[in-house]
Structures are given as structure tokens and as C-alpha cells.
Amino acid sequence: MDSLVVLVLCLSCLLLLSLWRQSSGRGKLPPGPTPLPVIGNILQIGIKDISKSLTNLSKVYGPVFTLYFGLKPIVVLHGYEAVKEALIDLGEEFSGRGIFPLAERANRGFGIVFSNGKKWKEIRRFSLMTLRNFGMGKRSIEDRVQEEARCLVEELRKTKASPCDPTFILGCAPCNVICSIIFHKRFDYKDQQFLNLMEKLNENIKILSSPWIQICNNFSPIIDYFPGTHNKLLKNVAFMKSYILEKVKEHQESMDMNNPQDFIDCFLMKMEKEKHNQPSEFTIESLENTAVDLFGAGTETTSTTLRYALLLLLKHPEVTAKVQEEIERVIGRNRSPCMQDRSHMPYTDAVVHEVQRYIDLLPTSLPHAVTCDIKFRNYLIPKGTTILISLTSVLHDNKEFPNPEMFDPHHFLDEGGNFKKSKYFMPFSAGKRICVGEALAGMELFLFLTSILQNFNLKSLVDPKNLDTTPVVNGFASVPPFYQLCFIPV
């Protein structure tokens, strides 16, 4: 009986604490739906499609509103004006990374994606500088992407125009580009180590996009005490870190300090320079996690976009025909596509942009946080508050993009057929937390897609009208449904 009384008292205290925290903070924060004790607004949000729920709530509470995930307040920004004001106009104040408990377990605050403060700034600055020195957006990395595009075309030829699921092959190409940047090595598509790495990356994007992960991140005790797919994700990350550590040891034994070959060499050189400046942010643990982040951000996002792009091109054969006509006119058949071609191919450029806009790969991006107490639109948001960005509300804005739910390359073309930029184009987020590999991803999408369409016609196994382009999961990332196609050599 005594234990029951204690339990009831504990629960009562928890409920009172929950109510007090919510009521004391709500006077400062933007308005929002009334949260339930302990669980907050979790029942009012469709976990399978958070973005749709945010759109519905914005119609009631406006472009800036507050939700509670458990006891934790989260300020939501919906629509271009609110997102721009926060991420661009007040970029420094909104540059923090929001709480992501599962990532905390995986990387302990290291790396480039989930770190904060001085650690994040130094690692991000170093990573950007190193990638630029190796030619991100310049010639040397373009050579690597072109080489991988040629290998991709050869792998597709091996399908002999038979029906195939493109998931694996389209994942190999961007993964190999990242391998060449980090390890100075590309792998054969049949290499077992490479296959294991690909498998872990593919599993992780599916797990991260599941409703279960949303629950884990908002009720963090689940991570330590409950079984579930989150444990598989943590094991996959541990596998990748151990693999990278092996490569780091190989580099330490063979590195030429006067001739760095890749990202690992550059990081080890930085560690050597910083060894007298303790404590340094440049450690082996930081290198492991930064490399894992580059793999995660640079492989599955690009391969998922490529997979979605081919599905949309199957669905819209008239678009595919126009792209192939432009390829034939500008590039021809006797040389590989290059980035200089893009400025002469406005329709193809528009298609690449429209694919990214339409699929809305990361509907709410990753959570941000404010780095200080900030007054925002007459609300006071306390330091450390998590900020949720609705990228969907920007990419699918119906004023900027008429009929935003329709796939239409003319969203990025003017009346004369010239490519038209849009400030609403934010597939990689915006501001200080914009994806480090934005330029690389854009290069890969253009070169891989043009190389495929230069060499193959795409054949659907069903009537294009019957192809479903609805994402199968739409949590962290929008993942396309399973499909097969035939690559018919031109």
C-alpha cells in the first residue's frame, strides 16, 4: 500500500510540474494548442506526416506557434517570411542545433551535424575549407563525379535492359564520391566492405524516417530501456565508426604531411598542428563522427533524390523527352556531361530543381535551437528552445509555385524558357546551418541524371499514369515507394 501511495504522489508531482512548466512558459512563447500533461501535443500531431499537421496548425495559430513534445516546448516556423527572418536575418541567433537524443547517444555531441557552439563552428569551418581545397564546386571533385558517372552508366548497362530496382546502384554512385573525398578511394560496386557500408546507410535513412524515431526523440528514456529499431540505428553508426577508425589508422601509418590526399589526411594534419593548443576540438573521436556525418549527409540524401527523380521522369515521359532533346543538342553522344553545360541547359536545370522542390526530401529539416534569449515577432523565446522549420511550407508555397503539388519544371523557367532562380528554393535548409555539401549534391544530381539520360531511355513496367509517387515514409525524410524500371541503351 505504501508503495502505491508513493507512486501516486510521484505521478501527481510530475503532472503538477508539467502543468507549471507549460503555464509559466506560455506567456512568453508564441500561441499554440493546449498541451496535455506529460505528453504535450503529441496526440494532435500525425507522426506519419508531421508536415501536414504543421500546415493545419498554422492555419489556426499563424506562421509562428508553439507545440509541446512531452514536456519540451518547440517553436514552429511556417512559411517563407518566418523562416527567412529566423535563419537568414537572425542567422546567428537561430544557428543552434536542437535536442536530438538519439544523435546524442550516437555521437556524444561530436561531428558537424549535431554539434553546437565553438566545437560546431570550428569543425564546420575546417570541413568547408577542406572540401573547397579539394575542389568542391571546382574541377578536381567534378572529375571524381564524372568518373563515377561513367562507372554508374557501365553498371546500368550490365542490367541488359531487364527490369531492376535502382535503389542499390543509385546509392553506390554518391557513396563512392564521398569515399573518394574521405578515403581517396572508390570501391567496386561488388566489394563486400562497400556493400556493408551501403547497407547500413540505407537502413539508417529508413529507420530515421519512421514514426518510432519521432517518439524516441521526444521521450528519450525509451532509447535506453525499450527495444526497437533505434538500437539497430545505433549499432549501424557504431559499425561505421569502427570502419572509419580502421581507415584512420591506415592513414596514420602512411600519411605524407607534405601531400595530403583526402579529408582524413587533412584532419590528422590539423590534429598535429593543434596538439599544443589544448583542449582542441580536433580529436580522433571528432574525426570519426565528422566522417560519419559526411557519409550520412552525402550519400543517402543524394541517392534518395536520384531514385525519386527517375520515378518522376517515368511518370512524366514528356519531361524526359525534353531533357534528352536538350542533352542531344548541347552535349551530344561523344563526350561526358560537365558542369559548364548546365548554363546552356535551362530546361534540365529546371527539372533538377523541380525534383528537389517537389519531393521535399527533408520536410522539417533537422531541429534548430536559439543560442540566446531572443525577441522574435513580439515573442520571447528562451535560450536553448528547439525550433522546428517547415521546409515544406517554403518549397510548396502556392504563391511562389502555382499548383505546388504538381510536378512542373516551369516553376523554374521564365516566359522565355530561361532558368529562373527562386529564393524559396531551400531543399538544403538556409542560413548558417545550410548543408555543407550543397554544391557537391547539386553537381552530382546534374551529372548523374544527364549521364543516365544521355545513355538510356527509361521504360516503366506499368502505365506511367498508374505510377504512385507518394512517399512511403514522410517523417525525417521523404522516401519514394518501391518501383522497377528498364534502362534501355540509346
Rank of each mutant, 00 (worst) to 15 (best):
S286M: 15
K118R: 13
S422H: 09
K84I: 06
D349C: 15
E253C: 09
L458C: 02
V292N: 05
D49V: 03
A321Y: 11
P404F: 06
I112Y: 07
S365F: 05
F110V: 10
H276L: 10
Q44C: 07
R132K: 13
L449Q: 02
Y308G: 05
K28Y: 12
E154G: 08
N398H: 14
K270A: 12
D349T: 15
G117L: 05
A350L: 01
D191E: 06
N176G: 02
R186A: 02
P471T: 04
T283R: 06
K138Y: 12
L29H: 04
M257I: 14
F376K: 02
C175P: 02
C172V: 04
N259Y: 08
V64C: 14
I141A: 04
E328A: 15
F183D: 02
V6S: 12
K423N: 08
G117D: 15
W212S: 07
I452P: 00
C266M: 13
R342G: 04
F267T: 04
K383V: 05
I331E: 02
C486P: 00
F126L: 13
E300R: 08
N217M: 08
L208Q: 15
P402K: 13
C266F: 14
A161T: 07
R307C: 02
F412C: 01
N457P: 00
P63V: 05
F194K: 00
D463R: 04
E354C: 02
P346N: 06
P382G: 04
I374R: 07
F482K: 15
E288D: 05
V64T: 07
F100M: 13
K121G: 10
L449C: 06
I223R: 11
G40Q: 02
A350V: 02
L67F: 12
L234R: 13
H410F: 05
L294S: 01
I182C: 03
I169L: 15
F446W: 15
G437I: 02
E142S: 04
F482W: 09
D188C: 05
T305V: 06
P464A: 07
N116A: 06
Q22H: 12
S220V: 13
Q340S: 14
C175F: 14
S286I: 09
Y189G: 02
A103E: 15
E300F: 15
T301L: 03
I141Q: 01
T304I: 11
Q44L: 10
P363H: 05
I141L: 14
S140I: 09
G171H: 10
F183S: 03
T320S: 11
L197A: 03
Q356R: 06
S3P: 12
P337H: 01
K420L: 07
L208E: 15
N107G: 09
D414R: 04
E300N: 08
Q214G: 09
F295S: 01
P33V: 02
F476L: 15
F419K: 06
V83N: 05
T302G: 06
T392Q: 15
I284E: 07
M129N: 12
R157P: 00
E122N: 13
L440I: 09
E285A: 07
I374V: 13
P404D: 06
E318F: 06
L287M: 05
I99V: 12
P367I: 08
M255V: 12
Q214D: 09
L54E: 03
K399D: 13
I205H: 07
F448R: 01
L208I: 12
K119Q: 15
V330Y: 11
P166C: 02
R144G: 03
R26V: 12
N204F: 04
L4K: 07
P33H: 02
H230D: 04
R377D: 08
K28F: 13
K158Y: 04
L16G: 13
D360Q: 10
K119W: 04
A238V: 08
K432G: 08
S254M: 12
L245P: 01
N133G: 14
P471A: 07
L361T: 08
I42S: 09
N277M: 13
T167V: 03
D414I: 04
K375P: 10
L14N: 10
F487T: 00
L445V: 14
H78P: 01
D256Y: 07
E93R: 05
I434T: 15
R108M: 12
H78R: 09
T320K: 11
D468I: 09
H230F: 11
L170G: 01
C435R: 00
M129P: 08
R342V: 11
V355A: 06
V351Y: 05
C486G: 04
L170S: 02
M443V: 12
I213V: 14
Y358C: 06
K459I: 06
I387M: 09
Q44I: 06
E318H: 10
E328S: 14
G62V: 01
T159S: 06
Q484P: 01
